[in-house]
Design a protein around this nucleic acid. Structure first.
Lengths: 341, 341
DNA sequence: CTGAAAGCGCTTACAG
DNA sequence: CTGAAAGCGCTTACAG
């Protein structure tokens, strides 16, 4: 009763389909691709044959004819770091499930590996490339003599003719401070991270601009720079308190810093947000949503960034030209650690 | 002085190289591929021409001849979850930079998306597929009539003829308890996560086996199941203390739970590790290394898992056969939250 | 409406 | 040692 499956284990070809349907390869091709010049009955027969053989067209062969392969290369500098992932997801989303396939290449912040990956991608004739940086600082161009469009995300290219999408860190700094001001806070400190990051200074500059416009400045006179860690947050907050500063708001450079700040404040008996409002940065769910109280934070909208990068790549493939740096605004995510006085 | 670059923007072909070198396409091919039957001088001339034209062979065309395309599909269920990433990195590592290219497909835990991606991968004639699950529980097979090898990682396939590599959760449970026992602890509790996870029960079973072998059991008589969150860790620890249990060790189902446990213990004035030793699970750096004290934890060695999956895929491509489930041992990462009494 | 032929960019026996 | 020819799996003018 159950006839042995005669389906070949190896992929069947168009020729197999054509033979089974009793037509030529050319006709089979037209039938499957819904070209108009095929009789309905013939088309049906071919499609049935394809179905029966589980025929999947060999895209490699197809691509040899078209200019596009339907593939895109995604070069990340550092997948381990958590910022690449949402960008990558946002891009993947724009590609749709299966319509465009993405080659993932992790260069591990190594220029040699990056060259290797680039060669491979070009050899595979990808339609375009997205380069995702590991930090927001500018990076070298992949090269200007690449014959497919390249879009840089997060970490902009240093070459003025390249196109990059980045986070608006200056605007994010303003946004954080404006929220604290809206909460009625005026004695504001800024505990931030690694000063070797350009973003550290951009955010601080945006923050300071917002303060200055309101006749204010950081209570300590300048941002406290350190590292992106909880322990720095704890230490810096402790210092601030022991120096006797009168403070009612703290803008933190990362959620991890904010977490440390919250710990110190709680242990010092300061209430958040009643006495001191605290705002973090990154909106890292695991940290922001699990702290006590839950952390108001700035979200860089990295998925949007990745999505924009991918859509821009398609526009460029469609003939649009693009160059320069485009900055995407951040978003405030309101939780419990800030509130109006 | 600077002559205009005449390099064509569009990729040059072997025919271009052959023409420039003054040889046939066949000879050019042999020269570039280091076949023996080519005169040294000719080979040099061809290579120089290729260099001059920045020639990159079209792998699509090459693949049409060979059985292998040098590509692998990586289907993840949920990239957002942090467990996929290290697995993916481990696999990527096994592929080498550029030798094998990987197509990344995020199915978002959606069977329809997964089918689409599978079709696309098969159409692109990948040499093999790795399926990375989002949770350690078994999953449906991708299908048994796929004509390339498939390896499942993290989440095993339900089909007995498929091959899967998974985490040894039972062994991990034993390992955690054996460490606490080695630290001289005997009054041990287990605060773990979501009971809908198979891993929750496997770890608990391993833990209990190790206790029983030493004539012990969990102080509360059974594991405390809840969610993988800090707040559950805080609450469960609080309950344990207020119930008056005499405790000198706690095995936590995740680092987040452990983090909550540490907070409660500190606030209750219990010293870690002096009074109570605490061990976490996942070895999530951001949590384990930033807690006070730093957290001893169980590392699932996911990079190794991904690496093994990739290497196994190659072995299968080389003719080896594999089926069933292979469990990889975890590793204890010793930090400050555990110590000998 | 259907099919033979040429071609996409390569590789590989097979002659010379 | 070199090159003409066939072929990988498809598509697309071009005839019929």
């Amino acid at each position: 009763m159950n006839e042995p499956a005669l389906l070949p284990k190896s992929q069947s070809t168009l020729a197999d389909v054509a033979r089974l349907a009793g037509v030529s390869v050319a006709t089979a091709s037209k039938a499957l691709n819904d070209k108009p010049q095929v009789r309905a009955e013939t088309r049906a027969r071919v499609k049935a044959a394809a179905e029966q053989l589980s025929f999947l067209p060999n895209i490699l062969a197809q691509s040899l004819h078209q200019q596009r392969t339907g593939t895109v290369g995604l070069i990340t500098s550092d997948l381990e770091g958590r910022f690449s992932i949402p960008i990558l997801l946002g891009a993947e989303d724009a590609f749709g499930a299966g319509a465009v396939s993405v080659f993932l290449c992790d260069a591990r912040d190594d220029a040699i590996r990056e060259r290797h990956h680039l060669r491979a991608l070009l050899s595979r004739r990808v339609d375009g490339i997205i380069v995702v940086g590991s930090r927001p600082d500018p990076r070298q161009t992949l090269g200007r003599n690449i014959d497919v469009p390249v879009v840089y995300a997060y970490s902009p290219s240093l070459h003025e003719n390249d196109y990059s999408v980045v986070v608006d860190n200056y605007g994010a700094g303003r946004m954080a401070i404006e929220h604290l001001l809206a909460c009625g806070r005026t004695k504001i400190a800024h505990i931030t991270g690694d000063p070797s990051y350009g973003a550290t200074h951009e955010r601080a500059a945006g923050a300071r601009a917002a303060l200055n416009e309101n006749g204010l400045d950081f209570v300590s006179g300048h941002p406290l720079e350190g590292s992106w860690s909880e322990s720095w947050g704890r230490g810096a907050a402790h210092m601030l308190l022991s120096q006797g500063h009168d403070i009612d708001g703290i803008f933190c450079g990362s959620d991890q810093i904010a977490r440390g700040v919250l710990d110190t404040l709680r242990e010092a008996g300061r209430r958040v947000p009643e006495d001191i409002a605290v705002i973090g940065f990154d909106n890292w769910e695991a940290f922001a949503a699990n702290s006590r109280p839950q952390l108001t934070s700035i979200d860089m909208q990295l998925e949007k960034l990745g999505n924009l990068a991918a859509r821009k790549l398609f526009s460029i493939l469609d003939g649009e030209t693009a160059r320069g740096i485009e900055a995407l605004p951040c978003k405030l995510v309101y939780r419990e650690s800030t509130a109006a006085l």
